[in-house]
């Protein structure tokens, strides 16, 4: 029982980190109707930016997380302005293909850029709070605790913004009907920019939070990128609620699955396959994912 609770807690913490990345991807999809295949690399960028903020300038690592989110937000705004805007001005014919190629290409570019800027070495960001906390039989790294609370706070803040503010309404309006939003005066280019910026900033924040826990390197974004894609397909493309539930589900499945399913001595060898397995099952039962409305494409 103790063992099970410890595993479940670990799964929950991992799930919260996934949620931060996946919500960003889902937000971008819901508004721009495209999958950002450079999402994992934006996560990596956030990790490096906060690493350098705190090691070079001595900025408190938690503040560095928020600064890195700002930097990655600006990066996202630039990416959307220079590379994705043509999709919405009618300059591009094969929109889906263009979106895949351009974001994928940017991802590879960021990997190589990071490799030459930061070197291939593994680095560890500064601890948020060093040491461990023990409650009874549970022992948890303090960084993971801090990160969980920060992740929850960011997710709640985001939900509040999306559901309660003017800007949030505009985001939802464009995501639900781009033309209808346009004819009531919403500048959808701005909303695209905002959604993309916020979406990648969430990934960047996740990367910065991961830094002291799972270490950073130029290739660190590949797996989170793939997993967040699996999560949003699982949760329903474009659904924020789906992204949250999907993330927690994946975190638990990976944590418990690699222990209780299959042969535990081989569990870790298939860990990354669990998500895909779960996805396959869900999609067979519900083709639009857990909370998916219907399949949406760019017009």
């Amino acid at each position: 029982m103790d063992f099970f609770v410890a595993q479940a807690l670990n799964g929950l913490i991992i799930g919260l980190l996934y949620a931060l990345i996946a919500i960003g991807l889902s937000l971008i999809f819901s508004v721009l109707k495209l999958v950002n295949f450079a999402h994992g690399e934006c996560c990596m960028m956030g990790a490096f930016v906060s690493y350098y903020f705190s090691t070079l300038f001595g900025i408190n690592p938690l503040i560095a997380v928020f600064l890195s989110m700002v930097v990655v937000f600006l990066l996202g705004v630039a990416m959307q302005y220079f590379f994705l805007r043509p999709l919405y001005t009618g300059a591009v014919e094969r929109k889906d293909e263009y979106a895949i190629l351009i974001t994928f290409g940017l991802g590879i570019f960021f990997q190589n850029l990071a490799m030459s800027l930061f070197g291939p070495w593994t680095k560890k960001s500064q601890d948020f709070l060093s040491g461990v906390t023990s409650i009874g039989f549970l022992t948890v790294d303090n960084n993971r605790l801090v990160v969980s609370f920060v992740a929850i706070a960011i997710v709640l803040a985001l939900l509040l913004i999306i559901n309660k503010t003017f800007v949030g309404k505009a985001l939802r309006a464009v995501s639900q009907d781009r033309d209808a939003a346009a004819i009531v005066g919403i500048n959808s280019h701005r909303i695209n920019m905002l959604a993309f910026g916020v979406g990648v900033a969430l990934a960047g924040g996740a990367g910065a939070l991961i830094g002291p826990i799972f270490l950073i390197s130029p290739m660190m974004g590949i797996l989170p990128g793939i997993k967040s894609f699996v999560i949003i397909v699982l949760g329903g493309m474009g659904s924020i609620k789906g992204a949250i539930i999907g993330s927690l589900l994946l975190g638990e499945i990976e944590s418990l699955g690699s222990i209780y399913l299959l042969d535990p001595t081989r569990g870790l060898a298939y860990k990354n396959a669990f998500g895909v397995l779960l996805l396959a099952i869900v999609l067979l039962v519900k083709p639009t994912g857990l909370f998916g409305e219907r399949h949406v494409r760019m017009e």
């Binding site: 003017f166 639900q176 033309d179 939003a181 009531v184 005066g185 919403i186």
Partner: peptide
């Protein structure tokens, strides 16, 4: 202003929220 032949309201928003979207613009 205009309406659509096939009605295009924001389905997953309340009536009042639908009304508030233009207020942002």
């Amino acid at each position: 202003g205009r309406t659509f032949q096939v009605t295009q309201v924001f389905h997953r928003m309340s009536v009042l929220e639908n009304m508030m979207v233009p207020a942002l613009a």
